[in-house]
Computed example of a mutant assay.
Amino acid sequence: MSHVLTSAPTFDDWEGVHDAVAQAYFPHSMRPLSRGPAGLSEVGVVDLGPCRVTRMSLGATVRVQTDHPGAWAVNIAESGRLEHRIAGTTVVSDAERATVCPPDTPMKLPSWDPSCTLVGFRVDEEFLRREYERVLARRPHPLPRQLDLRSDTGHDWLAWITSALDRATSDSPGLLADPRMQRQLGELLVTGLLLTSAPEEPAGARGTRPRIVRRVVAAIEDDPARPWTPSELAELAGVSVRRLQQGFREYVGRSPFQYLHEVRLDRAHHDLVHAQDATTVTEVAIRWGLSHTGRFAADYRHRFGQSPSTTLNS
C-alpha cells in the first residue's frame, strides 16, 4: 500500500496540480477557471491494488475531463457539491449522493471549486466484474449512475471508505500497513459497493440455480452470437421448452431469450467502447446476433443510457 497525506501541498504551476491529481486518481485534462496561484489544499491516497481511495480538495476552481480508462469511479462530495456530465447526462454528487462513473466513458466536471472536497473510490473494471460474480453469484449488470448514501448500506459503505482513508494515511496505520490486511480491505470495500449499488434479484433467483439453468446460462455465455432456438436450448438442458422457461423465470427472473438478448447487448457494448476507427455500429450488432438494428438501438439506449453511435464515437 502506498499513501500520501499532506495538509497544504504547494506547486509552482497547474502542471504540478494536474500531475498530483492524476497520480492520486485518474489521468485527465484540467483547466483552471479562476485566478490565483495553483493550489491543492489536500490530497490523501490509499492504494489497495485493484482499488484505491482518495480525498482531494483544490485551492481554485477548475474544469476536469476524463474517461476513467479501465476502471469504475465513485465520486462523493464530502463537502460542497459536484456536478458531473457523463455521456450527455448530468449527475450531482454531494454528502448524500455519490456519482458512479463507468469505465472508458467521457465524463466532465464543469466546475470543481474549493468548497468541494472529493472522496473518490476507484476499482479496476475486470476486478469488479469478478467480484460481482463471486459476491452476488450472477452475471454482472451495469452499476447505477447514483448511490444513495442515506440508506443503511450506503451510509455504512461511506463510513468504511472514510475510516480506511483516515486510518491508512495517519502516522500510525497499524494493521493496515500489512499487505494481507490491504487485500482484505480492498475486497471488503468492493463487496460493500456491490451490496449498496447492485439491484436485487427476484426472490426466486436467490436460491441455488438447478443444473438445467446453469447449463443453458453457460452455453449462452460461451457463444451468445449463435442463432439459438428454443428447442436447442431445451435439448441442451435435457428438459422441455416449457420446463426450461419455468426454470429461468424462477431462478433468473427472465426468459432464456431475454437473458440471451442481455448478454448480446453487453458484448456489443464492450466492442463499441473498445472499437477501432473503421468499426461501425451495424458490424458490431450483427457480430453478436442483433440483426434488427432498430430494436438494437432502442434496447441499447434503455440499458446503457445512450445510443450505440454515441458510445462508438466517444
Rank of each mutant, 00 (worst) to 15 (best):
A22Q: 11
Q23F: 11
Q23M: 10
Q23W: 14
A24G: 04
A24H: 02
Y25G: 01
F26V: 13
F26W: 06
P27D: 05
P27S: 05
H28N: 03
S29H: 12
S29R: 15
S29V: 12
S29P: 02
M30L: 15
M30D: 03
P32H: 04
S34N: 02
S34D: 08
S34K: 04
R35D: 15
R35E: 15
R35A: 15
G36A: 10
S41Y: 04
V43M: 14
V45E: 01
V46R: 09
D47P: 10
P50E: 06
C51S: 12
C51N: 07
R52S: 07
R52K: 08
V53K: 12
T54V: 11
T54Q: 06
M56D: 01
M56T: 06
S57T: 08
S57N: 05
L58C: 06
V62A: 14
V64F: 08
Q65V: 12
T66P: 07
H68Q: 11
P69V: 10
G70C: 09
A71V: 14
A71R: 13
A71C: 13
W72Q: 10
W72R: 07
W72E: 09
N75Y: 01
N75F: 00
E78G: 12
E78A: 13
E78S: 12
S79I: 01
L82K: 02
E83R: 11
R85T: 09
R85W: 06
R85F: 02
R85Q: 13
I86L: 06
I86D: 03
A87V: 14
A87H: 10
A87S: 15
T89R: 15
V91W: 01
S93V: 00
A95W: 03
A95T: 07
E96A: 15
R97K: 03
T99C: 02
T99N: 00
C101M: 14
P102F: 00
P103G: 08
D104N: 13
T105D: 03
